[in-house]
């Protein structure tokens, strides 16, 4: 009798939950709209200073000290802000040649980066060169398709990370470009490269199903798009599901605005890339509502 009674009760409880995932929140008055701001850079290439006044293309643009003020102001406006980088923060000015990347990582830490992925130029001083300055980074380096198992970087690089901001769970994974033919073998040593599309399929499955992320971001250094069939951000977006945003790099593409691509499930994926050298900061604002309450399946994308 007792046992039967229990089964009946739990069945009732499950049925209640199955009716909607709102559970307790059904008691709260108006559902709170959540707002997450994603700020991003790519290919900053050791440009800690603004370009000189006589530069033909970018006179007086960029500089970490200005980026700091800009980010500070946006964080004041929305404390639920993430700052991400899509790789190649090393190499490009004598700051790198003289200090080997120490300053780039130190300033990125001061700027409050939440994560960055590994670009091909992060290998420029070899795995030793990257490892030597990693202690200067107070944020994780995320790379899902480079396998560092048989290298000195083993254990230092994250396959993916999850963060929570204002109750929204955000999953971040990283993609790196094929190293062979681009980076000298001596520099990347036994680092293994895996197909970005297959890895993205695995990562999104983990982040969506296992980690139950509300927002999935791919930090990519594979390049925006190519004329030949080289794997690119566009191809990854099209061939996968559950990615909300791809923050790209490598091709130094100045996208005038984020590009919207349909994924495998015909859902929208945003791709953005902001040129190089820290001339621009990308900003994507995501607004969330509790699932089921407003039964809104469609979303508005304003770019």
């Amino acid at each position: 009798m007792k046992r039967r009674h229990f089964i009946k009760q739990s069945a009732a409880a499950s049925a209640f939950l199955a009716a909607g995932s709102f559970g307790l929140s059904a008691f709260s008055a108006n559902p709170k709209r959540k707002h997450i701001t994603i700020l991003h850079t790519n290919d900053t290439h050791s440009r800690l200073d603004p370009f000189p006044a006589n530069d033909a293309r970018f006179a007086n643009k960029g500089g970490v000290a200005r980026r700091a003020i800009l980010i500070e102001n946006i964080r004041k406006e929305n404390p639920s802000t993430l700052l991400l980088d899509a790789g190649d923060f090393f190499q490009g000015t004598p700051y790198f040649n003289f200090y080997g990347g120490e300053l780039e990582l130190k300033f990125m830490s001061m700027l409050g980066y939440d994560a960055a992925t590994i670009g091909n130029h992060e290998f420029d001083n070899g795995l030793e060169g990257l490892l030597a300055h990693l202690p200067k980074a107070n944020f994780p380096l995320v790379s899902s398709n480079y396998d560092f198992t048989n290298t000195i970087l083993d254990g230092y690089i994250k396959k993916y990370i999850t963060l929570e901001k204002d109750g929204i769970k955000i999953g971040i994974f990283g993609l790196g470009v094929k190293l062979e033919g681009l980076v000298t073998k001596k520099l990347f040593q036994e680092t293994k490269y895996y197909n970005p599309i297959e890895i993205s399929q695995d990562m999104t499955k983990i982040l969506k199903e296992q980690e139950q992320c509300d927002l999935i971001i791919c930090l990519s250094h594979i390049g925006y798009s190519y004329e030949n069939d080289t794997v690119s951000d566009i191809r990854v977006a099209e061939a996968t599901r559950n990615i909300d945003l791809i923050i790209g790099g490598h091709t130094h593409t100045f996208l005038p605005k984020p590009v919207v691509v349909k994924n495998k499930e015909n859902k929208e994926v945003l791709i953005n890339q902001v040129g190089f050298a820290g001339i621009n900061l990308g900003r994507i604002d995501f607004y969330f509502e509790e699932k089921g309450i407003e039964s809104r399946d469609s979303k508005t994308i304003l770019v």
Partner: peptide, 14 residues
């Protein structure tokens, strides 16, 4: 609690 994206705004700041 599950959340769904209802609006996205994107821009570039020089």
């Amino acid at each position: 609690t599950e959340y769904t994206v209802t609006q996205i705004e994107g821009k570039q700041i020089e």
